[in-house]
Design a protein around this nucleic acid. Structure first.
Lengths: 336, 336
DNA sequence: GCTGGCACTCACGCGCAGAGAGTGCCAGGG
DNA sequence: CCCTGGCACTCTCTGCGCGTGAGTGCCAGC
């Protein structure tokens, strides 16, 4: 168990290191924080913290920097979530109001988050799996060619081409459209398959091939698009990463280009998550941390957003910004 | 006028510098290219080329590197467009076939271009202004709330919410939908305004407010979305930029985040365009070149794509890859 | 107009010494 | 038992000087 003061020392080390980007020594600590003890005492505490693995020295005779474990303790026990300043709150509303469609909302959110945190922002499009169907539209582009348009409650639109085995009449198409909508509108995606299963039976044998093709495409769209889309921004903030940068920045940029990696980074949990360094289980990201949180139009989270930055980041501030943006985006989505 | 051999020397300098990233000296030139003259002669030629501003020395006693003007001459007069190797051609088809929707096509194209050229790829979504309308759909989400869905011949879908001044009946809506489509389907966006202008007159006075709202939203969508969308990828290739990188990479990343800048970079001309260094008229991009070309589903270009890389790039190879990808994407779009 | 020779100029890498920051340890005092 | 001041030690960082080598410009000769 660490004494109260030693925790205080760790907090001071984290704060100073985040500010200066340089290893912090015992003397500097006593000067910048009023710890009321001498540097020698601090040195003893630092030795203890180092034994426990919370801090480390880059070189034998340099100051200390926090380890991943040190940041973890800081985030869990020593730091709160810093609420935003009122100019920052105003920036959020200014930035997000007036978004015209879903792409716009997501795009603005990314830019906003990147700007507020001065880090790389990642925003996942509202997930289709937890969304409900607002409307399904079928358009005859040619006698045997249809376009399926799926509209979700979060404002997302997906379209697919369908080549029909046989031409389909306008009235049949209208009938299909009506039946389809009456069954699935307002339903969750996961419910849809069982709801439309028996639809072909209501039609003439001639048309059943086409009906099946339509249903197949619809279900495919629902499943396939569970592979979620993402938008990222603020990559230029990576240049503020550190001095030794080419080595650090390269793998990060690579990781950011892979959707799969990013989705893993954002995580499953819908609450606020902080992953520090190696906790990301990705070697290219061993000196980056990810702060993410779920957001949604109602009580329930439909997607996640977050930021990626150096492990040496301002956790309380970042967490505050991420949480505030997520809340506000949720409101925007609920309104539209 | 430069003699034949001096042009040859310039070509050799460009090729070597692109390969080695290091200033190239007279001796190295005679060794690696069989120029059949001595280093001393080359030195004279180099002095002449330097006087004309095609090459420069970073330091008094170092080799020469090409200037922007030198690259320009190289691209215009000395270099052809290198056709792709057959594995590369195969890669293109493998990569692009099986794309499921427009987002997918654009996404795959970006990744493909980035991979082929090992540079940053930029692909503009097919432009709405030069496209034609494939279908307009109107959906009643609530009695006085409509959703307008616009589908273009390039497969792009745009949707907008419309709050109606008064509720609108289903039959009126169907009538409006039919009339709207019969007038605008197959037409270019620029033609649409004049074609729908007198539509409200065909309806009862009660509904005219709503009809006007719908038309206004439609026209607004057409205009507003001329603000084109882009997708970029391969930013991690920026790390291969040079040794002095933090200074170089920062402004490039920043520029890449601004749509407006990117659109300017791609340029207007639908033919193959190469912009070298300062020709981009953007200080952050003074050591980058942009190779871009228009692509489209038919004879006509509907959008542009290209790559952004260091001025020291393999121009013939890059131009070959960009052109080949543009052609193939055009085919894909024409098929769907 | 091409060539070989020659003197000159810098950037680069290396070794070295001095300065400074920070540490660990120890003996003494509350 | 914990804190403190003092002290010797360790390393990094910076600046300096020097030799090396690549590359140049110029010139006289063919």
């Amino acid at each position: 168990m660490l004494s109260e003061r030693r925790l205080e020392v760790l907090r001071a080390i984290v704060q100073d290191y985040v500010g200066t980007e340089e290893p912090v020594g015992s003397k500097a600590l006593t000067e910048r924080h009023n710890l009321k003890v001498s540097p020698a005492t601090i040195r003893n505490d630092m030795a203890a913290l180092e034994d426990e693995g919370f801090i480390a020295q880059p070189h034998t005779s340099a100051g200390r920097i926090p380890t991943d474990k040190g940041y973890r303790l800081f985030v869990d026990k020593l730091a709160g979530v810093k609420p935003l300043s009122s100019p920052e709150r105003r920036a959020i509303t200014n930035f997000l109001d007036g978004a015209v469609d879903l792409d716009d909302v997501v795009g603005r959110t990314v830019r906003l988050l990147a700007q507020l945190t001065r880090q790389v922002a990642v925003v996942q499009y509202p997930s289709l799996t937890r969304s409900t169907v607002r409307h399904v539209e079928l358009l005859a582009l040619a006698p045997a060619r249809l376009m399926l348009v799926l509209i979700t409650d979060t404002g997302r639109v997906e379209q697919r081409m369908i080549d029909c085995p046989a031409p389909i009449g306008d009235t049949v198409l209208a009938d299909l459209r009506a039946r389809l909508n009456s069954r699935v509108v307002g339903q969750r995606f996961t419910e849809v398959p069982s709801l439309v299963q028996d639809l072909p039976e209501a039609f003439d044998a001639d048309d059943r091939g086409t009906i099946s093709a339509v249903l197949a495409t619809l279900l495919e769209t629902l499943v396939e698009e569970t592979e979620e889309r993402l938008m990222i921004g603020g990559t230029s903030n990576l240049t503020r990463f550190g001095h030794d940068f080419p080595l650090t920045i390269r793998p990060v940029l690579e990781a950011l280009e892979e959707q799969v990696v990013l989705l893993k980074l954002l995580g499953e949990d819908s609450g606020m998550t902080v992953r520090i360094g190696h906790e990301n289980h990705h070697e290219g990201l061993s000196s980056t941390s990810v702060v993410s949180v779920g957001y949604g139009s109602g009580d329930e989270a439909v997607a996640k957003l977050g930021v990626v930055g150096p492990t040496r980041m301002d956790y309380p501030g970042t967490m505050g910004a991420v949480r505030a943006v997520a809340r506000y985006v949720g409101q925007i989505l609920a309104e539209s």
